[in-house]
Design a protein around this nucleic acid. Structure first.
Lengths: 314, 314
DNA sequence: TCCATTTATTCCTCTAATCGGAATAATGAA
DNA sequence: TTCATTATTCCGATTAGAGGAATAAATGGA
């Protein structure tokens, strides 16, 4: 077994406080974690952890070894990068996460372009419609849409996205185009709960925040499904602008009530705070930020200051 | 691949100056050495050695990495030993060498006893009838019989062995027992060239060195074969006392001219000089020295000061 | 006190990695 | 120019390590 792998697993278990969490962080199966720790313990001839199914404590041997293991892993990483000096190219693995639709539409092309320029980097891209815990899940970088809660993550803002109402031309031909937000009460609304909870459309009326509530005949928690339903003429839904860029361009959906939208929400790249951001992560951020900014700009109006009610983050 | 294995191979190649020598030292096949260096170079994204079939130079990248690699290997070894602290047991691999017959008769039982007391140690025992180069061949310890040439090896003397003349009782009944060294001229001599080159028997006559030359009808360079020939009644041969201890005890050979033997030759444990003798090597030396000393004592007269002509070493 | 859930470990099968031998090609020395 | 040595590649065989499933144990909550 790769002895450095053993050390990596050992440090991860010590940091995570359990085999299971360390496995999640390192994307290893439970037996793989057990195997690595057992191999280390065999070589040391001593236990490094005392553990049961629900508790884990580090032993004296483990405590003494832990600092050395960290240092050795850091030293090797540094030595390898120092050895190749100024000619170093970013290499290694990066794990990213984003929402499913953002990942598909905006992030994937940027990742592919980055990988073609950096053949020594490998990536995992996790498209999730939940807020991942970066540290616990061993994720290097996330794209976060919406206001950020306080945390010790580093955030780099790359733009905003607008929340817009859309409907199919066929629907609008049948039912008329709403002229005011109040008109929405007369329409079939497809309530995507991720962006319009409580059947309420909040918007800026000039500089004033306003909202209108409505009855929705369809309430759904999946963005793609709500957009598909709107395309089929079932009603009006809300989407983030990038989610429907293709459909708008192709004429399958039309934006409505453009002057009555909520303020745009920010989009950030976020990553765990660290004294040393790895070169590959730095390289990706520097590569991706302007490209994602351009993507966001082309998919919506230029960035404006966010005012008023914060949206639920994705 | 075990990344530390890559570092170990890398350091060994740098020290040895060739893949082939490093492979010999580490007991790896040529492809295994190539594979380890290639894996390291793939991970660094740069060559560490420029090499042809007959030359090898370290690159700038390799030079920068070499010191780090050494330090990391040393740090890990130390960290593992420190972590387990006072409860540490010797562990790891030791490579020993000795002559074939000494290995079989005297060393093997000691090695087995040591291994049964130290289950965390593994050993390779190389029984060779040539003088191995410890550093080049990655050998931790050798048993050397005979005077030692100057070297930077550390030597610990554990005893002496006598060179004795032996013949079978049947031969002696047929041809008579030689009473003086000069009588050897009248006998059939089996000249084992390793111990009696130039058909000459050198011996101490009181305090004076003396010698007798003779015609030998059989000259052979293999100790076992010459002893076997003597057992068959073909003549008188010379042997180191431990080589024929069993035969003498069993009455299959008898020593002759005991008062006219050359001075005993020393037996040493030798190992490369190093600032830190590994705990497993230290443990083996401490374990083996008294036992081998006892073995040598029981197989021959007590240790006496070596005087006169040095024997060829084995 | 009991039960359900979670987690560490073990077993098994499959896949991938690494082994060494043989062959090849290249290099340097005689 | 030839030959011996050495680094590399290829191939088949063996071993290692993966993850899934099952198991057992421990813990927390009811």
């Amino acid at each position: 077994m790769d002895r450095l792998h053993e050390l990596e697993v050992f440090v991860a278990v010590a940091d995570a406080g359990s085999f299971a969490k360390a496995g999640t962080r390192l994307r290893l199966s439970p037996p793989a974690v057990t195997r690595a720790i057992s191999a280390l313990e065999d070589r040391l001839g001593a236990r490094v952890f005392n553990r049961t199914t629900r508790s884990l404590t580090i032993t004296d041997v483990g405590q003494r070894f832990l600092e050395s293991a960290r240092r050795i892993l850091t030293d090797l990483d540094y030595a390898e990068r120092e050895a190749v000096g100024e000619t170093a190219v970013p290499n290694g693995h990066l794990t990213l996460t984003a929402s499913v639709t953002f990942g598909r539409t905006a992030l994937a092309p940027v990742v592919c372009a980055f990988l073609s320029q950096h053949p020594r980097v490998t990536m995992s891209v996790l498209l999730l419609d939940r807020i991942a815990n970066l540290v616990e899940e061993g994720i290097d970088l996330a794209v976060r849409i919406g206001p950020l809660p306080d945390s010790n993550l580093v955030a780099k803002k790359i733009g905003t996205v607008r929340r817009i109402l859309v409907a199919s031309p066929d629907y609008l031909a049948r039912r008329g185009v709403p002229q005011t937000p109040a008109d929405l009460r007369l329409h079939s609304m497809i309530a995507f709960t991720g962006l319009m909870p409580n059947r309420e459309w909040r918007f800026l009326d000039g500089k004033k925040n306003n909202s209108v509530t409505f009855f929705s005949r369809l309430e759904i928690n999946d963005a793609a499904a709500s957009i598909a339903a709107a395309e089929m003429g079932d009603g009006i839904t809300v989407a983030l602008s990038y989610m429907v860029a293709d459909q708008i361009r192709d004429g399958r959906l039309a934006p409505i009530l453009d002057n009555f939208t909520p303020p745009p929400v920010p989009v950030h790249l976020v990553y765990p705070q660290s004294r040393l951001v790895s070169s590959k992560l730095r390289a990706f951020i520097d590569f991706a930020a302007p490209r994602l900014r351009a993507t966001l700009d082309s998919l919506g109006l230029p960035e404006t200051k966010a005012l008023g009610h914060p949206a639920e983050g994705l």
